[in-house]
Design a protein around this nucleic acid. Structure first.
Lengths: 145, 145
DNA sequence: CTTGACCTTCCCACGGCTGGAAGCCCCACC
DNA sequence: GGTGGGGCTTCCAGCCGTGGGAAGGTCAAG
């Protein structure tokens, strides 16, 4: 199976497959005599694994760890659970930060008349306001298509 | 006031101030005879404005718009409110996506015994599971320090 | 054999920083 | 009036994950 077929079978774009290979997340694919990458159904399983992990917001480093565990028949499920719980904690923390932002903005917006006059509590706050600096955390969902 | 003083007075690092200037977010600072950038207290206000906006998660493009409104004495508060409301909606959408991820992971983790045996429903899901692909959105909080 | 859909590699861009290197200049201190 | 160490300047490169595109080779159908 060539990279295009593997891509549509796994839901990972060909671009991304090459990128994952190049960055060492997945092993180098075998090549046909013509130099095309060649994939097995096991490889497609692995790619689906990666995609699902990304969809759940795991970082590359975490996915690397998860892939190792996935391949390791003598793994301990506790190791997997630990990574998942860490991810959940991270999500919860980031959700809280965003909730705080949303609440602040909602408060400001509710104080703003939103008419054709220039007086605006939102701008006033931006100019003056202090924030308990939320120390930024890792690996997010960003960059619209 | 030189860039270092402006940085500590505003809470924006000198690196960032130069970056914002270079990328056109803020106007080019005046220079002393020695070539040092020179800042006024108004400039510091502007920098604090930028920092607070970033803390609230506004994108560079949004901050550019907000800065223009901030400087525009004949602005309409409705314009500011519109940007804030859009930001809130974006936050709410992204929070929802992350909530969904967290819920999925929590379900999986609760099904995982987390012991020294290899059987693991989390890995099983990653290998098999489908996700209603959450279309990724813009401008996040990411990249750990 | 031609066509066009695929594959290959390579480089560039995004956002939002952060770090480093090289080199100059400034200012406080003695 | 020196001088040392820190500030300042510029430029370049990286992070993550992804998309876009160019230039060239390869495969399969017509």
């Amino acid at each position: 199976m060539n990279i295009g077929e593997a891509a549509s079978a796994s839901g990972v774009s060909a671009k991304m497959i090459r990128y994952y290979e190049q960055s060492g997340l997945i092993p180098k694919a075998g090549r046909t005599t013509a130099g095309y990458r060649d994939y097995s159904t096991t490889d497609v399983h692995m790619l689906r694994f990666v995609r699902r992990s990304r969809d759940l917001g795991f970082s590359m480093a975490e996915i690397e760890e998860l892939l190792q565990l996935w391949r390791d028949r003598s793994r301990q499920s506790a190791d997997v659970k630990r990574i998942a719980l860490a991810r959940i904690a991270d999500l919860r923390r980031r959700i809280q930060e965003m909730e705080d932002m949303a609440a602040t903005l909602e408060h400001l917006a509710s104080c703003c008349s939103g008419d054709n006059r220039p007086d605006c509590p939102i701008l006033a706050d931006l100019e003056q306001g202090e924030v308990a600096k939320p120390r930024r955390s890792r690996g997010a969902i960003d960059a619209a298509p």
